[in-house]
């Protein structure tokens, strides 16, 4: 057990926390926040597991993947927010309907 595993477990916790919020909240902005928390959890697991080198510098390949992932996550968030504003403009609400609109 090393600090790397502690952070990996925190990452797992963040992932499920985000998944729970993604399912239970109806507001789209909250769903976007939840997806971002899930992404942070995945990044944390990746980087934490890359640090399992005894004393040496950590594995740079997951680091590069996570940097790419952070930039992709922010662009996906921007697109999702634009879609949410469009949903708001079309239906007058920023939430998913609990029962289908007829």
């Amino acid at each position: 057990m090393s600090p790397a595993f502690l952070y990996a477990l925190v990452g797992v916790g963040l992932f499920t926390l985000g998944l729970y919020a993604l399912i239970v909240h109806a507001h789209l902005l909250r769903k976007i926040l939840a997806i971002n928390v899930m992404a942070s959890g995945v990044f944390l697991v990746l980087v934490a597991l890359a640090a399992r080198t005894q004393g040496a510098a950590p594995d740079p390949v997951p680091h590069a993947m996570v940097i790419t992932g952070i930039v992709v996550a922010v662009s996906a968030t921007a697109l999702a927010l634009a879609l949410m504003l469009r949903v708001r403009a079309e239906t007058g609400r920023a939430e998913l309907a609990e029962e289908p609109l007829e």
């Binding site: 790397a4 952070y7 902005l29 926040l33 922010v74």
Partner: peptide, 27 residues
């Protein structure tokens, strides 16, 4: 703490700065 200063720089600029600005404007 995980020895990833490159990721830390990207996160500080994007995760905290840009995403926050995006979310607040959208709100």
């Amino acid at each position: 703490r995980l020895d990833a200063p490159d990721v830390a720089l990207a996160e500080a600029a994007i995760g905290a700065g840009l995403t926050g600005a995006l979310l607040l404007t959208t709100l």
